[in-house]
Design a protein around this nucleic acid. Structure first.
Lengths: 146, 146
DNA sequence: AACTAGAGTGAGACCAGATATCACTGACGG
DNA sequence: CCGTCAGTGATATCTGGTCTCACTCTAGTT
């Protein structure tokens, strides 16, 4: 099943109509890079009204078809997401993103529960770094200069 | 040393003047609850210009006197912070915050480095839950209804 | 004490991301 | 075929934040 079909199916499953406008937004979202802003989608879905783009993206967020990704400067971007709970490893240079699910927070949750007496219900984790390609590039540049 | 003095000292140490306007912003920040928006500070520092409030808070952010805290709805709030790297455990009901530093991400970093070949440089972690008081309140309310 | 460079200020314009309003459209069930 | 209601889009508005620019204040220099 293609991404488009999956998205459409999930929307219909929840009783939402897949109109021409929504379809255009979905197409524009699928055409984006690893992560993007609403504005990027707006530019990619020309004939669709601003409000509808925001509404459709919020809907996709609610249906877990999109997720948000926090850049290290505090900006929130969007990203396609067809799975559930996961985190992001973002390359600070090129913006490339790897999803990962192995956040072993059990130990942390246990300790926090004990020390603070909170009932812990969720967490948000983003990891930042530099991907292999960008690291190679950087060392090559440094070698050229030095 | 009081919080005010600490903040003033750190500002002066870095060559920034502590003017009357900045002083008013600092006072307004110190008067806030666990976390707050720029707008809250704006309301608390009446005679100071909007731009100056933003500038001063950014300065305090740069000097690690403030930190940002990501609420689970994606909103970014500010919080007083006199220490370095730490994370937040936020109560979803009352907004109370506990700081903690024990984020044992070493294992995660090792695994991600191995599996993705990124050089990992940083992370952002927020934990959400319900504090003891809010839990008590909730169970009391449920008992009253049921 | 007067001078001056430069940090800091504030009113206001502007910008981006997002929501609210409201008249309209168009798809579907009866 | 009609009524209903989800969805649409133009537009206004809001919020969080930056930019600009003329101004002020202050610390250091003569």
């Amino acid at each position: 099943m293609s991404d488009v079909d999956l998205i459409i199916e999930r929307m219909e499953m929840r009783g939402h109509r897949v109109t021409a406008s929504r379809r255009r937004v979905i197409d524009a979202v699928l055409a984006q890079a690893a992560h993007f802003t609403v504005d990027d989608v707006l530019r990619g879905a020309r004939k669709v009204g601003r409000a509808t783009v925001f509404r459709t993206m919020k809907l996709m967020l609610d249906l877990n078809l999109l997720c948000r990704i926090l850049l290290d400067d505090g900006a929130l971007h969007y990203r396609l997401s067809t799975r559930g709970h996961h985190h992001h490893l973002v390359c600070r240079d090129c913006g490339r993103v790897e999803d990962f699910t192995t956040c072993d927070v059990k130990a942390l949750v246990r300790e926090l529960t004990r020390s603070t007496d909170y009932e812990i219900e969720g967490h948000w984790l983003e990891v930042y770094g530099r991907c292999h390609a960008c690291r190679l590039l950087k060392t090559a540049q440094e070698a050229a200069v030095g």
